[in-house]
Each structure stands twice: as structure tokens, then as C-alpha cells.
Design a protein around this nucleic acid. Structure first.
Length: 502
RNA sequence: GGUCCAUUCGUCUAGUGGUUAGGACGUCAGGUUUUCAUCCUGUUAACAGGGGUUCGAUUCCCCUAUGGACUACCA
């Protein structure tokens, strides 16, 4: 295979959502699998939709995911510039080339005129298509006498350049994922290639840039499939060899219908963006929700592709090794937030107590707690298996840091009986006399006491947990009291006794 | 409306012209845990429908249904 060069070509119109990230990821995996080059090209030909911060956001997102850009606006490269607005002067000559070859023409119709024609057609139950069927009746350099349209040009009247779609021709083409597709040109329209504001449209800029940048494979979202015939025709008109195309299936909403959209995140309570977004609107990101980038990437990679084995956990290197574009699915995948959490759980379990302690220490710092790593490692070893996110550690361990402020009423009803005050008082005195407060030691002492007196283990331990934790949850009691220490333990028993009473 | 694309458990998916249609998430049930959670074990549940082709179709073809994308001087 010739040198593999692929590009991810987003528009900086807002934060990149996870569908875009997955497109970038598949491009990256494909490139690296084939010792190729991954290019980031910014497609900002629509000045009206430019959004502050979006370009930075895209680059930061890729970086967070571990997707390394080989050529791009920051990285440079031999095929730059990599931002289409910086390539503005390139496109016009290609539009002119098409006009010279008779594949494109000037059109002077105003937006209003075309809108009217469209709505009229709609009322009549037809579809207005600007192509060979009607272009003779419209206002363009094909329908008007040469003197007239040249006059308009000289006068500086606004115009666009349209592609001259041939009449009644079947266009055959291949998609790596979808196979053979045929479309008749009569259903296609004379797309605008060059806008009246002096900028190319996506279609022109995209084809010119892909050719100039020697892109070998175009891997993009399914929403582009309908314009593939146009793109194929453009390559033919220029006399260029087209790249190979792959159209990725869409990411769908978890419930209901339709493709995942930028709005779904807040509506459904999970992020649709890799990172927090805060220009104008704000939106949650996976990074800030506590996802590890490798878990996020792993989850995303398996949404629409799988290697055909039962392996589910992959490092980026393993993904690169296993990836093949042919195994990408044809149909859309519904995004499942539950499975995303499961992936993070898997990755969190693989981290060392020390790593987690460092991460949790940052979390605690924000809450005003400052603890040493050894202490936190001990804490984390007690709850690690129960959490999926670092922030979950707090939910599992808040009572380590502070005595309960209230006691679960249901638990009082169920676990606190008339004997409880007396028994806990005895327990308190017993622990007070115990010097070695390691979990093993207190466990031995308390068990011996319960056995000697013939008490009921469940009764005591559940009431004990109630005064220490405030609820019916948490790790082993002896681990808890060992960590909080004797003084705090006794204090909590006393407080519990006075608050709950009998 | 038109064009194009798609359709295996609730979800992500494996798979083959002949399989008990496999796995994961979730669900549910047991077990462990004197709590809660984790964990373990088990369970649950699918080839959209109808025609063909064939000795035999989930698998190949056609139709229908359903879903989706596109239908801008947006990408």
C-alpha cells in the first residue's frame, strides 16, 4: 500500500462531541496500524459559525485521549497550512479550473429566489433540485447570454460558483465499510463550490485539500455519505485519483431515537463531550467527571468496531494492533452510559493504591483535608474495589473524616434495641482499655468479649456501625476504627449514645 | 416528499448455508460479606416481517416494515 495519510477535519463550531472523538480515534488507529500519518486539519470555511475556543478545545481533547497529531496547525508539516482559512488563496484557482473545463459555472440567483422556488416546489409536492433539469431557467452563466453574465461579473454582482452535475448518469463508487453504491446524477444538485463571500464551501475545500495533502484514506461520519457522489465527481472533473472512503456509523442516543447530539448530555445526565466546555454555554466533560482517558478511549473504540475476539480491555497500543477498518460496523451504535462506567471501574482497579491516593489527595485538598499519602493508601485499600471513580472514594469514606451528623432512621429502627445503650457503653469501656488499635487487635478483643459474655454479635456490631458511620454501610468495622483511632472511636460511641439514647 | 444507508438478547456485539446462536453491560436469583457495596456463581433475553434460492437459511436475493443520515452560499 502506498503511504497512508489520513486526516481528522473538524469544524471549530463548538466543542467536539464524542462522535467526533471516535472519528478522530478511528483515523488515528488506522494511521498507526499502517505506519501512516495522522493529520489534523481545521475546516473553518464558514466564518459565520466560528466559535471562540473551539480549535483549542479540539486539540486539547485529542491530546487528553492520547491521540498524537503528526501534522497540524501546531505541529506543522510539509503540506500546510492546516487551517482552511489560512489556505483561502488556494481554492479560487481550483474553482476557476473547473469553470475552464466546463465542469462549473457562475450563478447569480439570490438566496431569496431559491428559497421561494423551494417552498413552491414543496407545496406542489415536488423537490426543487438545482441541476440539469432546471438550471436553464435560472440565473446563471449557462442560461444567460455570455454578454449578460459577463456584464454581471464586471459590475461586481454577487455570484457563486456551482458544480455542473451531468444529466442522468449513474455514479458507481466503493466504500470500504459499505461496499458498492450507485447513485444517479438526476437526484443530485449543482452544489455551490465557491460562496459569494469569497470562501470555498466544504465540498471544494475538502477535495482540494485532501488531494494537495495526499490523503490516502478518508474516514469520516456517515452524515457525509450522501455527498460522496459529488466528491467522486469532483475528483473526476479535476482528473485526480480519489482516496479510499470509509463512512463510519453514527453514535445514537441511549434512549429514544436519533443521533447523539450536543444537547443530550445535560438532558440525560452523562457527558457527550470529552472535556468541560465553557465558552458561552457550559457542558460537562468526561475528564471532569473523573473518567480516565484510556478508559474513555477504550469504551469509544468498541462502539462501532470490535476485533472479533472476546477481549474488551485494550491499551491504545493494543487497539492499534487489533484495529482494522473493514471490521467497523455498518449500523449505528446506541451509546450506553452504564457500560462507560464499567470501563472506568476496570481501569481504576488496575491503578495502584499509591496512584489513587495521589489522585484522591487532590480531591480532598479541595474539601480542605490534608492527609499524608500513607494514610490515604490505607484508606483506599479498604474501598478501592467498590468504586468506579476517584470521587466515589469520598462517598465511601466521608465518615472516616467526620463523625456522623445524623443517624439513619431506618437503621435505628432496625438495629437499635433496648439493650444497645448498655452494650455500647460496655464496648466503649472495653476499647478504652485496648492499647493496640490495629484492626486485628480490636477484632480479637471485641470477639473475645462478645463470646465471653455470650452476646449476640449482630446486635452489637450493627449498633456499633450505626454510631460510628451513621448508617448501614462501609467496610469492616475494625478497619474503620483502626483508621480513625481510639479517641475518635470512643467519642463517636458516646455521641451516638447521647443522641440516639435508648 | 425525494435520495442513500442500516436492521442478531433491553444495550454493545460474536458468529455460520447445517451451532444448544457465543461474550460483555444491565436485570434477576443464590453465595460470600454480621452492614452496605464489591466479588463469585447462576439466570434472563435476540437473528424485524413476508416471499424466494436451497436438501437446509439468522447467514444469499427480492419486497415490506422500522430506524437513521442527507436534502443550505453549514460542515
Amino acid at each position: 500500500m502506498a503511504q497512508v495519510r489520513v486526516r481528522f477535519a473538524p469544524s471549530p463550531t463548538g466543542p467536539l462531541h464524542i462522535g467526533g472523538v471516535r472519528t478522530a480515534l478511528y483515523n488515528y488507529l488506522f494511521a498507526k496500524k499502517n505506519n501512516g500519518t495522522f493529520i489534523l486539519r481545521i475546516e473553518d470555511t464558514d466564518q459565520a459559525r466560528f466559535v471562540e475556543g473551539a480549535e483549542e478545545y479540539i486539540m486539547e481533547s485529542l491530546k487528553w485521549c492520547g491521540i498524537i497529531v503528526d501534522e497540524g496547525i501546531k505541529e506543522g508539516g510539509d503540506y500546510g497550512p492546516y487551517r482552511q482559512s489560512d489556505r483561502k488563496t488556494i481554492y479560487r484557482q481550483y474553482a476557476d479550473m473547473l469553470i475552464d473545463k466546463g465542469h462549473a459555472y457562475y450563478a447569480f440567483d439570490t438566496t431569496e429566489q431559491l428559497d421561494t422556488l423551494r417552498s413552491q416546489a414543496e407545496k406542489a409536492g415536488n423537490t426543487f433540485i438545482y441541476n440539469a433539469g432546471v438550471r436553464d431557467k435560472l440565473d446563471n452563466s449557462l442560461s444567460l447570454p455570455e454578454s449578460e453574465w459577463k456584464g454581471k461579473l464586471n459590475k461586481g454582482e454577487p455570484y457563486v460558483i456551482r458544480y455542473k452535475m451531468p444529466l442522468n448518469e449513474d455514479i458507481h463508487f466503493e466504500d470500504i465499510i459499505r461496499g458498492h453504491i450507485v447513485v444517479n446524477t438526476n437526484t443530485l444538485d449543482d452544489k455551490v463550490l465557491f460562496k459569494s463571500d469569497g470562501m470555498p464551501t466544504y465540498h471544494l475545500a475538502n477535495i482540494v485539500d485532501d488531494h494537495l495533502m495526499e490523503i490516502s484514506h478518508v474516514i469520516r461520519g456517515e452524515e457525509w455519505l450522501p455527498s460522496l457522489p459529488l466528491h467522486i465527481m469532483l475528483y473526476r472533473s479535476f482528473g485526480w485519483d480519489p482516496p479510499l472512503f470509509s463512512h463510519l456509523p453514527l453514535l445514537l442516543k441511549p434512549d429514544g431515537k436519533g443521533k447523539l447530539s450536543k444537547r443530550d448530555g445535560d438532558k440525560m445526565g452523562f457527558p457527550v463531550f470529552p472535556l468541560f466546555w465553557h465558552y458561552g454555554e457550559t457542558a460537562k466533560g468526561y475528564r471532569e467527571e473523573g473518567y480516565y482517558p484510556d478508559a474513555f478511549v477504550n469504551m469509544l473504540a468498541l462502539l462501532g468496531w470490535n476485533p472479533g475476539t472476546e477481549q474488551e480491555i485494550f491499551t491504545m497500543a493494543e487497539l492499534i494492533e487489533a484495529f482494522s477498518i473493514e471490521r467497523v460496523h455498518k449500523s449505528g451504535s446506541r451509546f450506553d452510559p452504564e457500560k462507560a462506567k464499567w470501563f472506568n471501574h476496570q481501569y481504576l482497579q488496575k491503578r495502584s493504591n499509591n496512584q489513587l491516593a495521589m489522585e484522591f489527595r487532590e480531591f480532598l485538598r479541595a474539601k480542605g483535608y490534608h492527609l499524608d499519602i500513607k494514610n490515604l493508601e490505607a484508606l483506599i485499600s479498604l474501598v478501592k474495589e467498590r468504586v468506579s471513580f476517584v470521587k466515589d472514594i469520598w462517598d465511601q469514606t466521608d465518615f472516616f473524616f467526620k463523625a456522623p451528623e445524623s443517624y439513619d432512621k431506618e437503621v435505628i429502627k432496625k438495629r437499635w434495641n433496648s439493650d444497645s445503650p448498655v452494650l455500647l457503653k460496655e464496648l466503649s469501656e472495653l476499647l478504652d482499655k485496648t492499647d493496640d488499635f490495629s484492626a486485628a487487635s480490636t477484632e480479637a478483643v471485641v470477639k473475645a468479649w462478645i463470646e465471653e459474655k455470650g452476646y449476640n454479635m449482630g446486635t452489637i456490631m450493627n449498633a456499633f456501625r450505626l454510631v460510628i458511620v451513621g448508617a448501614s454501610r462501609g467496610p469492616h468495622m475494625y478497619d474503620i476504627i483502626s483508621w480513625i483511632g481510639k479517641v475518635e472511636t470512643i467519642k463517636r460511641i458516646d455521641k451516638g449514645l447521647s443522641v440516639i439514647g435508648k
